[in-house]
Design a protein around this nucleic acid. Structure first.
Length: 575
DNA sequence: GCCGTTTTCGGCCCGACTGTTTTCAGTCG
C-alpha cells in the first residue's frame, strides 16, 4: 500500500511551495491531498485501478495525473525537479514553535541558515537581530522554541496526554469556581499522538479558575498567565493550555478547540452557505448569536446531528451528520471484559486475583488471563506443564468466585517463524481464548506467517497485528488487506491493542477491518492492574475508525463470546 | 490546485496574539 508514501510527497510538496512563496491556496490543495490520502481507509492503488480517484474531494485533474504517475513509475518528475531547488534540511526548522515558512525563507535567504544547528549558531552570534522584524523578544522566543522541541521530541503519546488531562480535569472539577470543564484538541479526538494538551473551562470567576489551574499540585512551571488563558509545564514535562470562556460561548469554544482543523473549515464553509458565521463565541446570523452554549445546539442549528469528537476529521462525518446516519460508535462503557492480561505466571506483575479485583471495580463480567507461551523465554513464557497448572488454579478460582465474574483460560501464543504455533493443538483446545502474536523477526514480511496462524482453528485473535510501536518502530512489512480478508473469512478477531505505545490496529486499519466484516477485540495487554485503564485508549482508537459496538467481540456477553470461539472450531471441523 | 443552487473565473474559515511595528505581517489553533 503506497498511501503513506504518497501522502508524504504531497506534504513535502506543500512545504516546498510554501517556502517558495507560492499562492497559499495552491499550497493548501497539496496539504489537503496529503491529509486525505493519509487518512484513507482504502488502498489508493485500488481506487486508481477502479477509476475512483476523481470521486475523492479535493483531488482534481492535475493531482489525479500526479497520483497516477507515482503509482506507475514510483516518482513524480515535477516533484523530483522541485526538490532539487531547496535544501532538504530547512524543513526541520518548521518544527520549531513560532517559526513558520516566511521566517524559514528569510533565515535561509539572508543568513544561509539551513538547519537547527545553523540557527543556534546564528543566535549565539547575534545575527538574527540584524534581520527586519526581529527584536530581542522574537529571538528569545525562537531560542525557547528550540529548547522545547529538543526536549519533547515533538508529539506526546495519547496515553500520556489522556493521563495528564484526566488528572487536571478531575482536580479542577472539584474547585468551586469551575462550572464546566473539558479536555479538547486532539486529546479529545483520541488521536494517537497530540501536540499539546488543551483544557477548556467556564464558571463565575475567570481569574479564580486560572489561579486554581496554575496552582495545581503537578504544575512545575507557569509559562504564561493572563485573565482568560494560561500555559503551564507539568511535572511530566508536557505543556498544558487552559482557556476560560463565557458560559454562553462554551459549546462554540469546545467545538472550535476540539477541531480538527479540517472539520472546522468544512463546517464553516457550510455556515457561510447558510448565511451564518461560526467562530469560537457562537453561531451568528448577522450580529445575533443563535447558538453557542452547547455543541449540540450548534450542530442542530445547522440541521445536523453532532458527530462524536473522535471522527471529526472531515472524512465523511459531516455528510453523515447532515443525513442523520452517523455510526453508533462503540461506547467507552460498553466493554464487558479484557482478554489480554499477563499475570505473575509469566511476565506480569499482578496476580490473577489482583486482576479479578480490578476487573470487578471496572464493572467487567469476564477477563482472560493471556500469559506468554514457552518460546518467549525473556517474558517468562509458560511451558505446557506450567500452563496446565495455571489453568487448574483458574478453575479453582472460578469456583470460589461463584459466577460474580468469569476468568477465562487464555494465552498469548507465539507465532513461530514458520507460522506454526508455540503450543500444539492438544494444548490449545483446552484454552477458552487463544491470542496469537508475532514477537520476532520484525524486519521480514510476516503476512504468510500471520495468515497461517489465522487458519488455525483454535486461534481466536491476532494480537497487535502490525507490530508497530508508536514513535519507535514501524510495523513489520505486512499485507494488512490479506490479513483482514483472512480474519473475516475464518471468524478470527483482530486486536486493537490499547497499550499506550501500541494502539495497534490503528484507527485507519480499524475502519478497513470493520468494513471488510472483521470482528475486533479491544484489549489492554496489561502487565499490571495499573495498566487496565488504557482500555479507553483502544476504544478511542476504534471509535476513530468508525467502529460500532456490534463489531467488537468484548462488548458481547460471555455466552456470545464462547459462541464466537465455538463457531470457528465448528467451521474447521474440530468441534 | 480545486470547485460551482449567483460563478468555468474568482473565490477559497476565522479570530487572537505577538512583536514589531506607526498600521501590519506572521504564526497558531
Amino acid at each position: 500500500m503506497k498511501n503513506k508514501e504518497l501522502a508524504q510527497i504531497f506534504e513535502k510538496w506543500a512545504d516546498i511551495l510554501e517556502f517558495m512563496g507560492d499562492n497559499p491556496y495552491h499550497v493548501r490543495a497539496y496539504r489537503n491531498a496529503a491529509r486525505l490520502i493519509n487518512d484513507l481507509s482504502e488502498d489508493i492503488e485500488v481506487l486508481a485501478r477502479e477509476g475512483k480517484l476523481s470521486q475523492l474531494p479535493g483531488i482534481g485533474q492535475r493531482l489525479q495525473a500526479k497520483i497516477l504517475e507515482f503509482l506507475r513509475t514510483g516518482k513524480i518528475e515535477e516533484f523530483e525537479k522541485l526538490k532539487q531547488q531547496v535544501p532538504d534540511t530547512i524543513f526541520t526548522l518548521l518544527d520549531i514553535p513560532g517559526v513558520g515558512p516566511k521566517t524559514v525563507k528569510l533565515l535561509y535567504e539572508e543568513l544561509g541558515i539551513r538547519s537547527i544547528e545553523d540557527l543556534k549558531r546564528a543566535i549565539e552570534r547575534g545575527e538574527l537581530l540584524k534581520l527586519p522584524g526581529f527584536g530581542p523578544k522574537r529571538v528569545e522566543k525562537i531560542k525557547k522554541g528550540i529548547e522545547l522541541l529538543e526536549k519533547s521530541g515533538g508529539r506526546i503519546l495519547l496515553g500520556v496526554a489522556v493521563f495528564i488531562a484526566d488528572r487536571i480535569v478531575n482536580h479542577l472539577k472539584e474547585h468551586s469556581a469551575v462550572e464546566r470543564i473539558s479536555v479538547c484538541g486532539s486529546t479529545r479526538r483520541m488521536k494517537e499522538t497530540v501536540g499539546d494538551i488543551d483544557i477548556l473551562a467556564s464558571g463565575k470567576n475567570n481569574l479564580e479558575i486560572v489561579e486554581a489551574f496554575v496552582n495545581l499540585p503537578n504544575v512545575k512551571e507557569v509559562l504564561w498567565k493572563g485573565p482568560k488563558k494560561a500555559t503551564v509545564i507539568v511535572e511530566e514535562g508536557e505543556q498544558v493550555d487552559l482557556r476560560v470562556i463565557e458560559p454562553d460561548s462554551y459549546g462554540a469554544a469546545l467545538q472550535y478547540f476540539t477541531g480538527s482543523k479540517a472539520h472546522n473549515i468544512h463546517l464553516r464553509t457550510i455556515c457561510l452557505k447558510m448565511g451564518y458565521k461560526l467562530n469560537e463565541y457562537g453561531l451568528f446570523k448577522g450580529d445575533k448569536r443563535i447558538a453557542g452554549r452547547t455543541e449540540e445546539e450548534i450542530y442542530s442549528a445547522l440541521g445536523m446531528d453532532t458527530p462524536p469528537p473522535e471522527i471529526r476529521e472531515d472524512t465523511g462525518e459531516i455528510e453523515a451528520a447532515q443525513e442523520h446516519r452517523l455510526p453508533k460508535l462503540v461506547g467507552y462503557n460498553e466493554i464487558r471484559g479484557d482478554l489480554h492480561l499477563h499475570s505473575t505466571w509469566s511476565d506480569g506483575a499482578s496476580t490473577i486475583e489482583d486482576y479479578v479485583k480490578r476487573a470487578l471495580e471496572m464493572g467487567y463480567s469476564y477477563i482472560a488471563i493471556s500469559d506468554h507461551s514457552k518460546s518467549l523465554r525473556v517474558a517468562g513464557g509458560l511451558t505446557e506443564e506450567e500452563l496446565l497448572k495455571r489453568n487448574y488454579e483458574i478453575d479453582k478460582l472460578n469456583e470460589r468466585l461463584g459466577g460474580k465474574i468469569t476468568v477465562l483460560k487464555g494465552a498469548e501464543v507465539d507465532i513461530l517463524p514458520d507460522g506454526s504455533l508455540d503450543y500444539p493443538d492438544e494444548i490449545l483446545v483446552q484454552l477458552d481464548f487463544v491470542i496469537a502474536a508475532v514477537h520476532s523477526r520484525f524486519n521480514q514480511d510476516n503476512t504468510e506467517r500471520i495468515l497461517k496462524a489465522i487458519n488455525n482453528p483454535y486461534v481466536n485473535a491476532i494480537a497487535h497485528p502490525t507490530g508497530r510501536i508508536i514513535g519507535q518502530r514501524e510495523g513489520y512489512p505486512l499485507d494488512i488487506e490479506k490479513v483482514i480478508k483472512a480474519a473475516a473469512e475464518t471468524g478470527t478477531a483482530l486486536e486493537v491493542n490499547s497499550y499506550y505505545n501500541r494502539l495497534d490496529l490503528r484507527d485507519a486499519h480499524c475502519r478497513m477491518a470493520v468494513k471488510a466484516g472483521v470482528t475486533l477485540v479491544i484489549n489492554t495487554d496489561s502487565h499490571h492492574t495499573d495498566h487496565m485503564w488504557m482500555m479507553k485508549l483502544g476504544v478511542g482508537t476504534a471509535r476513530r475508525g468508525w467502529v460500532e459496538g456490534r463489531s467488537v467481540l468484548n462488548t458481547r456477553p460471555l455466552s456470545e463470546l464462547k459462541a464466537f470461539v465455538a463457531a470457528k472450531r465448528k467451521k474447521f471441523g474440530v468441534l
